[in-house]
Nucleic acid binder design. Sequence first.
DNA 1: GATGAATGAGTTTTCATTCAT
DNA 2: AATGAATGAAAACTCATTCAT
Lengths: 196, 196, 196, 196
Amino acid sequence: MGQRKTTPAKREHILQVAAQLIRDRGIEHTTLANIADAAGISKGTLYYYYSTKSDLIFDIADRHMNNMTSRIFRWLESSGTVQSPRTVFRMVLDTVMHSRSRGHIHLYLIQEALTENPSLRARFVQEYRRWRSIIEEGLGRVYGDGHDYQVMAQVLLTTLDGLVMQRLIGAGPIAIDEVAQFFETAGTMYRENEPV
Amino acid sequence: MGQRKTTPAKREHILQVAAQLIRDRGIEHTTLANIADAAGISKGTLYYYYSTKSDLIFDIADRHMNNMTSRIFRWLESSGTVQSPRTVFRMVLDTVMHSRSRGHIHLYLIQEALTENPSLRARFVQEYRRWRSIIEEGLGRVYGDGHDYQVMAQVLLTTLDGLVMQRLIGAGPIAIDEVAQFFETAGTMYRENEPV
Amino acid sequence: MGQRKTTPAKREHILQVAAQLIRDRGIEHTTLANIADAAGISKGTLYYYYSTKSDLIFDIADRHMNNMTSRIFRWLESSGTVQSPRTVFRMVLDTVMHSRSRGHIHLYLIQEALTENPSLRARFVQEYRRWRSIIEEGLGRVYGDGHDYQVMAQVLLTTLDGLVMQRLIGAGPIAIDEVAQFFETAGTMYRENEPV
Amino acid sequence: MGQRKTTPAKREHILQVAAQLIRDRGIEHTTLANIADAAGISKGTLYYYYSTKSDLIFDIADRHMNNMTSRIFRWLESSGTVQSPRTVFRMVLDTVMHSRSRGHIHLYLIQEALTENPSLRARFVQEYRRWRSIIEEGLGRVYGDGHDYQVMAQVLLTTLDGLVMQRLIGAGPIAIDEVAQFFETAGTMYRENEPV
DNA sequence: GATGAATGAGTTTTCATTCAT
DNA sequence: AATGAATGAAAACTCATTCAT
């Protein structure tokens, strides 16, 4: 829904291939020649679709964030019919962390945004805010009342980012179930103690 | 204090300068020429002290992790005499997130470890485990009993990482106080519900 | 009036647009993609009308030289009815230097002719001779007698070229009036001293 | 006297070689690989001395203009002891136009300055002014009195530029002697008629 | 210890041109 | 007539690394 122009099939193909390569080797170690090769086209053709490496990266980031957003959205939709908050948490954690590669690309893109891509950075800031508010709304729905879940949403989102990093590093298995439970009990607790 | 061999003053100087540059522009955008320039030496001399860019980066990472570790250690030491768990959390969050630049370098180094520096990665894995166990011990001390704070330690550490990332992106101010409170109440709650 | 074949409207349009671009950015910095864009057509279509960049440039040069020639011709026509030689010079200088853009394209085209377009160069040689003889004839008419104005015509034409260059560089305002006067007095003088 | 830093021998060598190539084929058709080859060094080494094609071109232009300037200066020096104005003109014209290659490079550099090198352009403007004033002073000396030779200096300089262009195009032999004579008689005349 | 010079292998970018539809 | 897609060959630029002095 609303990519730039109408992404033609080949542009889409390039996007996929490039994202895959970047996942595997990082942005800096993925050359345009690599991408062209993997996509089965010439460098010239690559240029036809993306006249700059930056452009390509921006589109990959864009796609990535849209994916994340719609994933979280779907969670929000479904959460209306779910009884157990715990199940919900498990699902969120699970979904977002789903593929190691997704985490990889997430980290690379942030890095890129940080060092030399101001517009990409702006995009990240905007998207983070969006995610936070979606999560907030979802939490409100799960717990059913009018409490303020701002902080909890932030912690949850933040934890997700942290999990991505730790998972990438591979510092031991991550006990998602336990973390989910932690958040559930914390949520209940927090709600009760709120008037602080 | 016990670097490899006896770090001569110039090696130390190079380290500092390089770390600073990497903080500002990322690893990939910091060339050896940049470092030599900033350090006021020639590229040849740089190579006299560090025969490879990787070596230099490893040393920077080493230094960085030692810093983190001793910081968390200090917390452990001090936590024995602190009454309020909340104060403790605030302090940890505060300390670790202290400088934006530190966060930057943390992220860059992880990236590097991820893409092409397996030994650096191993080092990170080891250090993360260490941090987690320190935090675990500290939590036990704060809450005073024999409960198992593994998950909570993980969540705390993870959140720290996540906070670093979000802070880097600059997605709005981070309500450290509130997060600290969240963890405190969560901690209490979790302790009580533990038998799961 | 009488281009090759019968220049269809679109070919003419391309010509204008391309000339404009070249005026602004030079030949080397004007790509066929630029021209196609500016003309509102596709590169493919551009190739339908001009099978080579060289062809297009030749046509532009052709047009440019025809313009210059007819301008000087007009001067010749009018000069018969003019009394003051000075007025005439002023007019020539003024006319030829009329638009900065024309000077630009003149220079660019000469450059092109020089480096890689022998046929264009031949065309320039031919045209320069023509201009010189037109000017010579005009001078004879102005001064009314049978003297030989070859040198003066050359100096005048040469000065025009020089003025174009200096004007392009923008090295200060050019005192056209004074230059015109210089030529007038010089002309008179020269005529008298001729038997050298 | 006062190149940037102290031009090492190799830098100087590169400069000469590059200037030569540019004279022969133009800026656009002279690649860095060509230059490196002709200079007997690698592209990397070329980069060591000139990190940009623009830098190199600027230095060539700088050198070129210094050459021109000192050539005109020398004329000024010598002109003090010369009796015949005509001899002087001949010499100036002759000297400046001396080598066809010099003209070539002059034209290319102006072109370059025009299209995308503002600092080069500024340099040209400055140098043109300098040349004009040197010529003015020289004329005053030749004609011995306090008249104002501004216009004549401009016409002379302009004519030189024009001659360079026409010579490059190769539009017939240039009658330098006659042109010199024209300027001499014109000079005398102009001086006498000055109070206009 | 220190350095400037040199390098080569790789990387992005450019663009005139071709061609099937 | 018109076009979008594709291409290749070349060009500029990057930079970690080596080495004689």
